[in-house]
Simulated assay, not measured.
Amino acid sequence: MFSGVSSVKLAYDEYIPPNGNKTERPLVILHGFFGSKRNWQSLSKAFMKDLGRPIYTLDLRNHGSSPHVRPMTYTHMAADVLDLCQRLSLTNISLLGHSMGGKVAMSFALNPETPPDLLKDLIVSDIAPVRAKVSADTVLHIEGMEKVEASNITSRKQANEILEEYEKDPSVRAFLLTNLNTDTKASPLKFKVPIDILKEGRPEIESFPYAPGERAWDGHTLFVKGSKSKFINWHNKPVIKQFFPETTVSELDAGHWIHAEM
């Protein structure tokens, strides 16, 4: 537990290899904004088979099946991850985070109270350790989801039609609609995620808890950039190296959702 920071118990899925190992050298995966552990189901099964290691996918606070709670800071989200690792007695973890989850993973690595022997490898997917505005698309997505909830809709089809005004890409709309709570008979339909908390927390999501030169993590780190994405630009490379001196940066032919496109 980080001093003065309250954590919550995160929902998670586990994928355990045939040898029954649940704790040694696991890969822990953190999703991005509006994502959930469900986004990583297929890849997690493949990772477990290929690596022969346990895989844990987490729902970060205010996402998926995890608790709805303020505040939405990276230090609090990193504390949630530490709590889960300690509750499950995980050791020598590899931590993979995409987008917002990547910033959580970096915050976890850089926090001076993270046990030094807990984190073995860090993988950051298409995000940089910088303070920068979220994309205009994200702002539109929040507006669209607010419109859905205000429209008293009763079907996924209606929600999709409303979101089409805010997002033209059907695959992105499908991603956003994974958050729609269709498992209940309650009407009208609402999202599982607390739109108000996520909207309120947007300035924190745009931020980063450390300034260059303030902290560094010397462990093995891999940054993966989507060549069609602007979330990492090559001007960020010196900043990345300041925080993570042992960094390799790889570029893949993909957009921001690298794990869904490759």
Rank of each mutant, 00 (worst) to 15 (best):
T247S: 15
K228I: 08
S207N: 14
R156E: 13
N181Y: 10
R38H: 12
A136V: 06
E261W: 10
I29Q: 01
L10D: 06
E161C: 03
L163D: 01
F231M: 05
S171N: 06
R202N: 05
H259A: 04
P212H: 12
V148C: 07
A159V: 09
V69L: 05
A128N: 04
L30Q: 03
Q158G: 01
I205Y: 10
N152G: 13
G102A: 08
I127D: 06
L84R: 06
Q86A: 09
L119V: 08
K168T: 14
S36L: 10
P238A: 05
Y74V: 05
F243S: 05
A211K: 15
V28K: 09
E261L: 05
E206I: 07
S7F: 15
L27W: 14
A260S: 10
R173H: 08
E149L: 01
D59A: 02
K228R: 14
E200N: 00
E251S: 10
P67E: 05
I197H: 09
W217F: 11
S66A: 01
T182M: 11
A105L: 11
V172K: 09
V130K: 12
P112D: 10
H141P: 04
N19M: 10
L88N: 00
V81T: 11
Q41I: 15
G255T: 04
N111R: 09
G52V: 13
H98S: 10
M106P: 01
V8T: 12
E206N: 03
P26I: 12
D59Q: 01
M145Y: 11
M72I: 14
K185C: 03
L27E: 00
S65I: 05
